[in-house]
C-alpha cells in the first residue's frame, strides 16, 4: 500500500520534472531557463531521496544532499554570470 502510493508520488514528481524541462527548452530568456533548472534540481533531489527508499540504501540520501549543495552553488553562479555578463 505505502509503496504503491510512494510510487505514484514519484511518478507525479517525475511528470513535474518533465514539465519543468519543457519550460527550460521553451525559454525564451536565460532567466526562464535558470528558473526551470532551479525547480528541476529540487524535484530531482526529492526523486533521489525516493530512490534511496526504494533501494533501501541510505547512501543515496547523502547523494541527494550533496546534489542539493552543488545545484544551489550552480544556480547562484549562473545568476552572477547573468548579472555581470548581460549588463
Amino acid at each position: 500500500m505505502a509503496d504503491t502510493v510512494l510510487l505514484v508520488a514519484s511518478g507525479i514528481a517525475l511528470a513535474a520534472l518533465v514539465l519543468a524541462g519543457l519550460r527550460m527548452v521553451l525559454g525564451p530568456t536565460a532567466v526562464d531557463r535558470t528558473v526551470a533548472l532551479d525547480g528541476m534540481t529540487i524535484m530531482a533531489l526529492s526523486l533521489i531521496a525516493a530512490y534511496a527508499y526504494f533501494t533501501g540504501r541510505g547512501i543515496y540520501v547523502d547523494v541527494a544532499m550533496v546534489y542539493g549543495l552543488a545545484s544551489f552553488a550552480g544556480v547562484v553562479a549562473i545568476a552572477r554570470y547573468l548579472e555581470g555578463g548581460l549588463k
Binding site: 514539465l19 519550460r23 524535484m43
Partner: peptide, 22 residues
Amino acid sequence: TIGAFLALGGSIFLLLASVGML
C-alpha cells in the same frame, strides 16, 4: 502509509510548480 500520503501531497505541489512555470 502516513509518510506515503505526505509524499503524495508534496509531489502534487511539485507538479503545480511545473504547471505554474509553464
